[in-house]
Amino acid sequence: MDGVPRMPERRGPGAPATLRFGVLGPVRAWRGTELLATGSPQQRALLAALLLREGRTATAAELIDALWGEEPPHQALAAVRTYASRLRKALDPQILVSESGGYAVRGLGEGALDLAAAQELAAEADKARS
Rank of each mutant, 00 (worst) to 15 (best):
P26T: 10
P26S: 11
P26I: 05
P26N: 12
P26H: 12
P26A: 15
V27T: 15
V27L: 09
V27C: 12
V27I: 13
R28Y: 07
R28D: 12
A29P: 03
A29G: 08
A29M: 03
A29Y: 09
A29E: 02
A29C: 11
A29I: 10
W30N: 03
W30R: 03
W30F: 13
W30K: 03
R31N: 08
R31V: 07
R31G: 08
G32Q: 12
T33C: 01
T33E: 14
T33S: 07
T33V: 13
T33L: 14
T33I: 06
T33Q: 11
T33P: 03
T33R: 13
T33M: 06
E34D: 15
E34G: 01
E34S: 12
L35F: 00
L35I: 05
L35W: 00
L35P: 07
L36H: 10
L36W: 05
A37D: 15
A37W: 13
T38P: 03
T38R: 09
T38W: 03
T38N: 04
G39W: 01
G39E: 10
G39P: 01
S40R: 15
S40A: 11
S40P: 00
S40H: 12
S40E: 15
S40Q: 11
P41H: 11
Q42M: 10
Q42Y: 10
Q42V: 08
Q42F: 14
Q42G: 14
Q43D: 06
Q43W: 04
Q43I: 11
Q43V: 08
Q43S: 14
R44W: 06
R44L: 03
R44C: 02
A45L: 07
A45P: 00
A45V: 05
L46M: 12
L46V: 10
L47H: 00
L47Y: 01
L47T: 00
L47D: 01
L47Q: 00
L47R: 02
A48N: 07
A48D: 11
A48R: 15
A48T: 08
A48G: 06
A49L: 09
A49Q: 04
A49E: 04
A49V: 05
A49F: 08
A49M: 05
A49R: 02
A49I: 05
A49K: 06
L50S: 02
L50M: 14
L50E: 03
L50H: 02
L50A: 03
L50N: 00
L51V: 07
L51D: 00
L51I: 05
L51M: 00
L52S: 08
L52W: 02
L52H: 09
R53M: 07
R53W: 07
R53I: 00
E54R: 15
E54N: 09
E54M: 10
E54P: 00
E54T: 10
E54Q: 15
E54G: 12
G55S: 00
G55E: 03
G55W: 04
G55M: 04
G55T: 04
G55I: 02
G55R: 02
R56T: 07
T57G: 02
T57C: 13
T57R: 10
T57P: 07
A58Q: 06
A58P: 10
A58R: 06
A58I: 02
A58E: 00
A58W: 00
T59R: 14
T59Y: 01
T59G: 15
T59N: 04
A60I: 08
A60R: 08
A60D: 09
A60Y: 06
A60K: 02
A60M: 15
A60Q: 07
A60H: 14
A61G: 11
A61Q: 14
A61P: 09
A61F: 01
A61K: 11
A61E: 15
